[in-house]
Design a binder for these strands. Structure first.
Lengths: 330, 330
DNA sequence: CTGAAAGCGCTTACAG
DNA sequence: CTGAAAGCGCTTACAG
C-alpha cells in the first residue's frame, strides 16, 4: 500500500491544529476563510482522503445501507438495486449487497453483520419475518410488504394493477381468463394483484380459473398445477401471471406442449422487467415505475437515518400496461 | 440504538484482560482453554459482537471487496454478482456494489472510495483503463480483460466459443452466416470470439458478413448497421451475436421487420444468461460457466489479499453450446 | 475562531 | 500464558 497522509499530516502542513482540519472537512460553521484555504491547500498537496473507519468509530456510522433481497440474479431486483445504488451514491452512501437466499441462517447472520459494520440502515425485500431487524433498532424500509408492525414500505398500486391486467386481457379478446401466482404466509401488498384481478372480472361478469399457491413452492409444482388447470379448463385463452419471471416460465412450459402464445393463450405479467435501459423482453406486462420506487426508498431510509424519524410511511406508485408480443394485436 | 457491549465489558465479565478477549476472538495460538471458555461465556452472555470499524482502524482492512461493473442491471453481471457475493460471504468478506456507468467521474470516485473505506480488493469488469486502481496498490482481479500490465483475470475460452458458434450455425443448416458485435479500444479477451468465428468459417470455406463496431456505440447505430448489412446481403440466414444481450435486441429488431427467428434467420448468442436458477430465456447460446468463474475470481482476489501474492494469473474456462429456440430443430 | 486533549473499540508488541 | 499500555485516525466538548 502506498503512503497515505493522515489528518495530522494535513494539520502540520497547513500549520493549524487537528481539530481545525476536521472542521473544514466537515464544513463546520464558523471557520475563518483563511484557515479553510490553508487546509484545503494542504489536503490537495498531500492528496489526503479521510479515513472512514476512524470517522465511523467515532461517530458510530458507516454511511452505508445494506440491501437485502432474495437474489440479485433477477431482473426485477437487479434493476431496483441499480437505481438504489445510484441514488445512494448521490447522497454519499454506499451499498452493501446481501443475497438473502444465499444464506442458510440469513436473519441471524445479517443482523450480526449490520451491528458489526455500523450499517446505518436496511432496504429490504423479503417475505419472511423482519421483526428482528426492526428490533435491532436499525432503520428499515421494505418493498411490497404489509406489516402489523409500523414498518415503512414502498410498493406499487397492486390492486389497480390486478384490475388493469384483467381489463387488458378482456380487451384483447380473452373469454376464459386464468390467474397463476404464489403468495406468502405473511401478508404482502402483492396479494392485492390477485384481488384486483378477481374483482374486476367479477364486476364484468366473468369467472376465472385460479392457481394460487402458498410459498415455498417449486417450479415443478407450479408447472404441474398449471397443466392440471389447463386440462380441466381447455377453454382458457388468457393468463395473468403474478410476476414477469413467472410469465417467462409459463411461456416456456406452454412452448414445450406446443401451445402457442399469444395465438392460443395470451399472457400478461407484472413488473415490467427489462434486460437493460433501452432493451425489451417484448412481453406484455404491468410495469412498476422502478426508478421512482428506488428513489423513494432511498429517500425514506435516509430521512430515517438523518432525521431520526421513525413513523411508518407508505408510498404507493401507479402502474401502467405495456403491450408486448404475448398478447394479440388489436 | 440498543446497548452494545464492548470488548471491555466482556473482559470485565470474564475477569480477564482486554488482550485476552481479543486473542480468543481472533483464535490466537496459546491461550489457555479455561480462558477461552470464560471469554466465550461472557461473549454469549453479553451478546457481544466485535466492532469491525475499530478492528479495521487498527489492522487497516475492512474485509470487503468492491465489485465494479458497468451495471448490475444485466443478467450476465447479476448472475456473476450473485455468485461473487455468495463465495465472498463464505470467506467472511463483504461485497460493496459499484455500478460503473452510474458515475460520471467513476474512476476517480471509486479509487477515493476504496482508499477511504479500506477496501481490501477489487473485482472488476470494465473495458476502460484500470491502471489507476492498479497503481493505487489495491489487489485487483479483472474479468475478460487483456492487459499490458500484469493484472490477473478470469475469462472463458472465447476463441473456442467463437469457433463453436460457427460450427453450430453450420450444423443447423446455415449457409450464409453473419457476425454482429462490438469491441473496445483496449484489447480484451472477448475479441477472440470474433477471431474464432472467422477462422472456423474460413477453414470450412465459408465467407461471412460482418458488423463489428468500436465502442461506444448506440443501439440505434447497431440496428442501422445490421439492416444495412441485411439489405446488402439478403441471403443471410444465421447470425452469431457477440453477447446474449445483443441477441435479445437483434431478435426484437428482426421481429419489427417481420423477419422470423429461427425460420428465416437463426441466432446464436454468447454468455448463457438465464433469468433465474432454473428458468431459461430459451435462446441458443454459448454458455460461460459463471458460478465457477465467480468462485475463481473470489479465490484469486483473496489469495492476493491474504498471501500478498501479486503475480499475474490468468484462468480460462471452457464454454458449451446450449440449444434454444433461436435455432432450428435438427 | 481555534488549540489541546480525551476517547471511540479494537490489536499487538512488550514485560513478566 | 496473560496484563498493562500504546496507538490506529478521527471528532468533539472544553477552554481560552
Amino acid at each position: 500500500m502506498v503512503f497515505m497522509a493522515t489528518m495530522k499530516d494535513v494539520a502540520r502542513e497547513a500549520g493549524v491544529a487537528l481539530g481545525s482540519v476536521s472542521r473544514v472537512i466537515n464544513h463546520a460553521p464558523g471557520v475563518k476563510q483563511k484557515t479553510i484555504d490553508k487546509v484545503n491547500a494542504a489536503i490537495k498537496k498531500l492528496n489526503y482522503v479521510p479515513d472512514e473507519y476512524a470517522r465511523g468509530l467515532k461517530v458510530k456510522s458507516s454511511k452505508t445501507v445494506a440491501l437485502i433481497l432474495p437474489s440479485i440474479w433477477n431482473l426485477f431486483f437487479a434493476e431496483f438495486a441499480y437505481y438504489v445504488e445510484k441514488y445512494l451514491a448521490e447522497k454519499n452512501y454506499k451499498l452493501l449487497l446481501c443475497n438473502y437466499s444465499n444464506n442458510p441462517k440469513a436473519e441471524q447472520h445479517y443482523i450480526k453483520m449490520a451491528k458489526q459494520n455500523k450499517i446505518d440502515a436496511i432496504i429490504c425485500i423479503t417475505y419472511d419475518d423482519l421483526d428482528k431487524y426492526f428490533y435491532a433498532g436499525i432503520p428499515l424500509v421494505s418493498i411490497d410488504r404489509y406489516f402489523e408492525q409500523k414498518i415503512s414500505y414502498v410498493t406499487s398500486e397492486n390492486y389497480e394493477g390486478g384490475r388493469l391486467a384483467a381489463e387488458e386481457l378482456l380487451k384483447h379478446g380473452v373469454k376464459h381468463p386464468a390467474f397463476i401466482g404464489t403468495y406468502n404466509h405473511n401478508p404482502s401488498d402483492v396479494m392485492k394483484r390477485h384481488k384486483g384481478f378477481a374483482e374486476y372480472l367479477s364486476e364484468q361478469g366473468y369467472e376465472f380459473a385460479d392457481v394460487y399457491l402458498l410459498e415455498p413452492v417449486t417450479k415443478e409444482k407450479e408447472e404441474t398445477e398449471l397443466f392440471k388447470l389447463l386440462d380441466k379448463n381447455p377453454e382458457i385463452d388468457g393468463i395473468f401471471c403474478n410476476t414477469d419471471s413467472l410469465l417467462l416460465d409459463v411461456k416456456n412450459w406452454l412452448a414445450q406442449r406446443e401451445i402457442s402464445v399469444p395465438e392460443q393463450i395470451q399472457l400478461i405479467g407484472y413488473d415490467g422487467i427489462k434486460p437493460d435501459f433501452n432493451s425489451e423482453l417484448g412481453i406484455s406486462t404491468i410495469r412498476q415505475p422502478l426508478p421512482e420506487m428506488a428513489k423513494c426508498a432511498v429517500e425514506m431510509v435516509i430521512e430515517k437515518v438523518e432525521q431520526h424519524r421513525d413513523e411508518q410511511r407508505i408510498e404507493r406508485f401507479p402502474v401502467s400496461y405495456i403491450e408486448g408480443n404475448t398478447t394479440k394485436n388489436i
